[in-house]
């Protein structure tokens, strides 16, 4: 399988990348690690006429403390995010989840920015950022703007970014509370059939992988926890109001069942970790 022909341009800076994108935003795509985009192009599900390669912008690969949050450059690879001491200390959920994406080869190439911008409900990292109450910094021809993670994912593979915008940074509040990530799949390297990212720190946030058209929060679970429900009671509401997909791996009913089981496990694990 080989992608349809395209013109290849290599950007030397974020400004240049945005300018190249702006020339024809609907037909051009940014290429980072390529581990979401290239598979789509090989299947001819994506046929951009111009690929703007931003993969060499080393200035967008970093994990650092920035006041009360951790800032992660969009081109930070999964393996680098997993290993970064700042992430391990201040965003352990995100660090752990980065180490659960795909397999070692995928983690050597894939980036957090690429994963998030792809907006795939089956991806692990968007759920982790949702559970942490994070945000995304995007740059377009008009400058920067910051978007809350919970407003970012708008439809299947659709985000709040305009076609001429580039994701540059991911921000998550420093977290000192309990956290957990539960991923259920049949083979180690597979996408999650269902996944759960939970952050328990005063108020609790629970996000779900592959339980709808977007990465999403388990609002009914969060509301139950806020009202004082036990982990088990709250988890029983994990699929409430959701329409999980049915595919070759699992029926919608099975996904709903998995969500209830995995949310309970995640809440128990996060609470135990908080101590």
């Amino acid at each position: 399988m080989i992608p349809a022909p395209f013109e290849y341009r290599r950007a030397g800076s974020v400004d240049e990348a945005v300018a190249l994108l702006a020339e024809d935003p609907d037909e051009r795509k940014l290429l980072a690690g390529g581990h979401s985009l290239l598979p789509l192009m090989k299947l001819r599900l994506a046929t951009p006429t111009v690929l703007v390669d931003v993969g060499r912008l080393a200035e967008l690969s970093y994990v650092r403390e920035d006041g009360d949050h951790v800032a992660i450059g969009a081109l930070t690879r999964h393996c680098d995010l997993e290993a970064a001491p700042v992430a391990r200390e201040h965003a352990p959920l995100l660090s752990h989840v980065a180490g659960q994406v795909g397999d070692p080869q995928v983690r050597h190439r894939g980036t957090i920015g690429g994963s998030v911008a792809h907006g795939d409900p089956a991806s692990d990292l968007p759920a982790a950022v949702l559970a942490l109450g994070g945000s995304f910094v995007v740059q377009g021809p008009q400058g920067h703007r910051e978007l809350a993670a919970e407003d970012f994912f708008q439809g299947f593979l659709e985000t709040a970014m305009a076609p001429d915008e580039m994701l540059t940074e991911i921000r998550v509040p420093k977290s000192g509370g309990g956290w957990a990530f539960q991923k259920f799949n049949r083979r180690a390297q597979d996408w999650a059939i269902v996944g759960v990212a939970a952050s328990v720190n005063g108020s609790s946030r629970v996000a779900l992988v592959n339980m709808g058209p977007t990465p999403l929060r388990a609002r009914a679970v969060e509301a139950a926890l806020a009202a004082g429900a036990s982990a088990e009671e709250a988890a029983s509401r994990a699929a409430e109001g959701l329409e999980p997909p049915a595919d070759v791996q699992a029926s919608a009913e099975y996904r709903a069942h998995l969500a209830r089981v995995l949310v309970r496990r995640a809440l128990e694990e996060a609470t135990a970790r908080r101590g």
Binding site: G34, P104, H108
Partner: peptide, 25 residues
């Protein structure tokens, strides 16, 4: 399709699946 790993090579010393990397990259 980036699944089986038969095409694994080292890129700057790190394993990658060469079916999912452009030569240009």
């Amino acid at each position: 399709t980036t699944s089986c790993g038969a095409c694994t090579v080292l890129l700057d010393g790190e394993s990658v699946k060469s079916c999912t990397v452009l030569a240009a990259q």
